[in-house]
């Protein structure tokens, strides 16, 4: 680890001020410590934001649910209101990391988890995300875990978090405060950026921003929602493919609303508007689910090691639709 200075900060304004001076934040620390240990992150200063009053889950009068940025993943997973209203979010949290990591990691930090691309984490190799302009080792390297959607000639690294995938299916938004005191809301769907030719820029956050929390709007209540995660081992592993599905059905079993997002396959949490469109207005059955899910891989670009993800993604989405619609 490179030397750095450390100090806790007391409030969001103090945190933002340190960030403007170039400090990096540490919250749960579960990704930051790995990045520090491997020399990927070399901050001059770490500002510990754990004392900010951003913990806990509350319900608005209209039924929206707010999750403070420093809420631990396990505490969010254990919240009965969240589980009842938005099961897809709870299921994604249940399948995230290990119990120890869930007790430490925060929901705000989870949105900012860095890619698990082998080359990003290995400072002895070229990586455009870690060292812009150095090249992408994954394009023709060990790319079994890399993206088939949203990549560019500069980067095919997967954003590995489960939570934002689920949050997209329930129209969640991120609350952000800037150092100047201004607050803004960004849909989770628009929070992460495509790599393009600047893969080192991963989100819409600017220097001096602090994530205050998340809000899941009341209008997303009542959808049948479900999260499916496929991985190399039964537990404690990143997704090879995952799918969050939220559907509203009318009394006749016809789909009136559909939100579908996928993880483990794309450079950012990835919404599938074409699959949603295929489901709208149809009476859901297993054939419809399969036909719609074919569109999940629309635009996919596969590499030497990750072509398996194309059918895997389609079948993961199909299974998530079937299970969400209780057609199994």
């Amino acid at each position: 680890m490179q030397p750095f200075t450390y100090a806790p900060v007391a409030d969001a304004a103090g945190a933002a001020a340190r960030a403007l001076q170039g400090a990096s934040f540490i919250a749960g620390g579960t990704d930051m410590l790995q990045l520090l240990q491997e020399g990927v992150a070399q901050p001059a200063e770490l500002a510990d934001i754990n004392r900010l009053p951003l913990q806990g889950i509350t319900e608005d009068a209209d039924g929206a649910i707010r999750i403070g940025a420093l809420t631990r993943l396990q505490d969010a997973a254990d919240d009965a209101r969240l589980r009842e209203a938005f099961p897809v979010v709870t299921e994604a949290l249940d399948l995230t990391a290990s119990p120890m990591v869930r007790h430490m990691a925060t929901v705000g930090g989870n949105l900012l988890q860095r890619t698990r691309c082998l080359y990003f984490r290995d400072v002895s190799t070229p990586c455009n995300k870690r060292l812009p302009g150095s090249g992408c080792s994954a394009l023709d390297g060990e790319n079994r875990h890399n993206a088939i959607l949203g990549g560019s000639e500069h980067c095919i690294a997967v954003q590995p978090s489960d939570l934002p995938v689920a949050l997209i299916s329930v129209d969640a938004e991120v609350q952000i405060q800037h150092a100047d005191g201004a607050e803004r809301w960004v849909p989770v769907e628009d929070f992460h950026r495509l790599p393009g030719d600047t893969p080192q820029i991963e989100t819409v956050l600017r220097q001096g921003d602090v994530i205050l929390g998340l809000r899941i709007p009341a209008h997303a209540r009542g959808r049948r929602s479900h999260y499916v995660k496929v991985r190399d081992r039964a537990s404690f592993s990143w997704a090879l493919a995952s799918a969050a599905v939220a559907l509203r059905l009318d009394e006749g079993g016809r789909v009136t609303e559909a939100r579908i997002a996928v993880g483990g396959v794309a450079t950012k949490p990835w919404r599938l508007p074409r699959v949603e469109q295929e489901l709208l207005g149809v009476r859901l059955d297993r054939d419809r689910a399969r036909l719609a899910a074919v569109w999940a891989a629309e635009g996919a670009v596969t590499r030497s090691g990750n072509a398996f993800k194309q059918p895997l993604l389609q079948r993961t989405v199909e299974r998530a639709i079937i299970e969400a619609g209780e057609l199994a």
Partner: peptide, 27 residues
């Protein structure tokens, strides 16, 4: 592993399981 992957360093923090390798002592 010192990277949070093996769990050998598990301790309880305020009664809850954490991996002590992924936390600064100051925290």
């Amino acid at each position: 592993c010192a990277l949070g992957q093996c769990g050998a360093c598990t301790v309880l923090l305020d009664g809850k399981r954490v991996v002590s390798c992924l936390m600064l002592a100051a925290m």
